[in-house]
Design a binder for these strands. Structure first.
Lengths: 205, 205
DNA sequence: TCTCTTACATACGCGCTGTATGTATAGTCG
DNA sequence: CGACTATACATACAGCGCGTATGTAAGAGA
């Protein structure tokens, strides 16, 4: 067969990744064969193995791209807010919304930790968005808006809470109602971290 | 070959399950073959397929048993507490402790949702322990100790928070320190849900 | 004791992953 | 501009692991 230019090669790789994204999202990592991925991308398995050495690496690329899109949405919402506290709130709201709406929920919240292993998954998450959340929390604590012991611990707690919530909301019969319920209680949780006397010198306990 | 009595049969089934538990916990669902499970249990794959129809069903049995042990520890701690609020706190503490210590973390927190599918996993979790958490929260809300919108939503948030926290703590260099950090911030989150004026008629917002 | 059922073992097919090999063309260097 | 190399795939092959069909010996009930 003919060989494509370097530019074409990247297009092929992207097409494979995008096709795989849809399949992984719909049927899960284990149920998707590379043969069908290749077929849907109009190449053979050889091309898949050429661009991504194995199935797991392909999945990691898919997950990273999805993660990046989520992170972009979150940071955009957070940056648009007036003050840091509102930024945290807006970021959380954006995360919930996009995680529920987005079709990549299964990839990021269900398969990724199991397929990649927790620590690998965690570091990729940190590089994309988790880091941002932890820093936002740390800033709020440093400026006394928040009273916490550890930004990392708090970040993990919030991240886990939102992940689980997103999965629950997505399965709910009335998503909008479930989202608002969850949001109501999540903001209550967040408010529990606010320093009682308002911004002070430091919020680390 | 010789055939065992009904009693023996249950013993065999249990041995398979226990052996599989160790392997799934150590190397994850995907990396464990039924051949080695059978070998370690001193039977052939035929026996495994006789007792559990397929690999996933075996895993579900393993997960259910592990889940039950966690649930027992949690409810024991919660029931030992003086009042409902302390019960919630004690239960959360027990969950974190056992989830971090226990070797079945990988099974319950990483593989189970992906292998069983979220809704199946969720209902099994609800049957074992999640239901208990939701009820405890609902009781506290009904008696005005807690101000929340939805017990289910709050339960999911807390459950997710603790799951993620457990994974983080388990990977931390100093587990005890990480546990205390997390515990400190988790109690702060929980306190955020307490009704400001103490127990009142109802805590539903 | 005869029969049916249970508790396994054995044997086989098949899908899917990964790898080794082949091939034609895009770069590139003299 | 021609030769050489590296790249972008396709093809062919090997092996593992799941599931299933089938066989068999012994317990349980009539």
């Amino acid at each position: 067969m003919a060989r494509a230019t370097k530019e074409q090669s990247e297009i092929t790789a992207r097409r494979i990744r995008e096709v795989a994204t849809g399949m992984f999202a719909e049927r899960g990592y284990a149920s998707v064969g590379l043969e069908e991925v290749a077929a849907a991308a109009q190449v053979t398995r050889g091309a898949v193995y050429h661009h991504y050495g194995n199935k797991q690496t392909l999945f990691e690329a898919v997950a990273a791209a999805a993660q990046q899109r989520v992170a972009d949405a979150v940071t955009a919402a957070a940056d648009a807010a007036a003050d840091p506290w509102d930024g945290l709130i807006a970021g959380c709201r954006a995360f919930l919304t996009v995680s529920v709406t987005d079709s990549h929920r299964r990839i990021l919240l269900l398969d990724a930790p199991a397929v990649m292993g927790w620590s690998t998954w965690r570091s990729q998450d940190a590089a994309a968005s988790g880091h941002h959340l932890t820093e936002a929390i740390a800033d709020l604590a440093a400026t006394g808006h928040l009273t916490i012991t550890s930004p990392e611990a708090t970040s993990a707690l919030l991240s886990g809470a939102m992940n689980e919530a997103a999965l629950r909301i997505a399965e709910a019969p009335d998503r909008d109602a479930a989202l608002e319920e969850t949001w109501s209680d999540l903001t209550r949780l967040l408010n529990g971290l606010r320093s009682a006397a308002g911004p002070a010198s430091s919020g680390y306990a």
